[in-house]
Simulated scan of single mutants.
Amino acid sequence: MHSTWADLAAYVREEYEVIEEREDEIRLEFRFEKYDEEDERSQIVVLLREVLDNKHEWVQIASPVGLAASVDLAALLREVGHGSIACGAAIMGDHVVLRHSLPLRDLDVHEFDDPLALLAGTADQIEEMFFGGDGY
Rank of each mutant, 00 (worst) to 15 (best):
S101R: 15
L107G: 00
L102R: 10
E50A: 08
I26N: 03
A117R: 11
G66V: 01
W58M: 11
L48Y: 14
L116C: 02
E21M: 07
P115C: 06
E127Q: 14
M129T: 12
K34F: 02
E79S: 10
S84I: 07
R78N: 15
F32H: 03
V65G: 03
L116G: 04
I19N: 13
D113Q: 07
D124P: 08
P103I: 04
Y136L: 06
H110E: 14
G121H: 01
E37S: 13
F112N: 13
H2S: 11
A6R: 09
L104D: 00
E29D: 11
A89S: 07
R27L: 13
L77Y: 09
F131C: 12
A89K: 08
Y136Q: 09
D24C: 02
A69G: 14
A89R: 11
D72S: 12
L28S: 00
F32V: 05
S84A: 13
R78A: 14
H56K: 14
S42L: 06
I26M: 10
F30M: 03
A9K: 00
S63I: 07
L77T: 08
K34P: 00
H82G: 12
D108W: 09
H100A: 08
L8M: 02
E37A: 14
V51W: 01
G121T: 04
H95Y: 13
Y16K: 03
S84F: 11
D24H: 13
D94H: 00
L8W: 02
G88H: 06
D72K: 13
V18S: 00
I26R: 05
V97M: 05
E20S: 15
G83V: 04
G88K: 02
D36K: 06
E29W: 13
V97W: 01
I26C: 02
L52N: 12
A120R: 08
D36P: 01
I44M: 09
E21P: 01
V80R: 12
V80G: 09
I19T: 15
A123T: 05
H110V: 10
K34C: 04
L67Y: 15
M129W: 11
L116F: 07
D39I: 10
L76T: 02
H95N: 11
P64E: 01
A75N: 08
R78S: 15
V51K: 00
F32W: 02
L98V: 03
A90V: 10
W5M: 04
I91H: 01
A68S: 10
S84M: 12
E127Y: 15
L76A: 07
A90M: 06
D114V: 08
V97C: 08
V46W: 15
L77A: 12
R22D: 09
D7F: 11
R49F: 05
E57P: 04
E29F: 01
E111N: 06
H100L: 04
D72I: 11
P64K: 11
D36R: 08
H95I: 00
E23P: 03
L73P: 03
E14P: 01
I126T: 10
G135A: 09
E25P: 02
V65I: 04
D53N: 09
A62S: 13
H100Y: 10
F30D: 02
L77Q: 12
E23L: 10
R22Y: 10
E20W: 10
S3D: 05
H2R: 05
E15S: 09
R41I: 08
